[in-house]
């Protein structure tokens, strides 16, 4: 599966457009990571636990996006966009959407 965030895939032509596909996941932080982050808040710097948590969440949302595209019979997803929103205190939603297409 070819995934890009450009409208066209360089070097390939799009033959069929199958519409918008999306994948999302909501993740909450867990207490252990929260305590570490609380300590890190005093001296500042990177919160590695959160960085990992969010990139894992993004991988999961990406898997769901790909699964949906495969269901439609697509072999590529173009114009992929990411969006993050905090739904409630302590939880974040990761949403990925793009256009499923068939390329030659």
């Amino acid at each position: 599966m070819i995934i890009t965030n450009t409208e066209e895939i360089p070097g390939k032509t799009i033959t069929t457009c199958l519409g918008v596909v999306s994948g999302s996941t909501v993740r909450a932080k867990h207490a252990g990571r929260d305590i570490m982050a609380g300590l890190k808040n005093i001296v500042g710097g990177e919160l590695k636990g959160y960085t990992e948590l969010l990139s894992e969440a993004r991988d999961q949302a990406m898997d769901r996006l790909q699964a949906q595209a495969q269901q439609l019979g697509a072999n590529a997803i173009v114009n992929v966009r990411f969006s993050t929103s905090s739904v409630a205190a302590g939880a974040s939603e990761i949403y990925i959407y793009g256009t499923a297409v068939i390329v030659e």
Binding site: I2, G44, L54
Partner: peptide, 26 residues
């Protein structure tokens, strides 16, 4: 949105990403 300059023949392309969570000090 397209490769800049003459890059030659393209073999493939893929989505890449990088993230960082940084906190402020007290």
């Amino acid at each position: 949105k397209t490769p800049v300059g003459d890059v030659g023949e393209i073999s493939h392309c893929t989505l890449v990403s990088g993230n960082a969570v940084i906190s402020i000090d007290y």
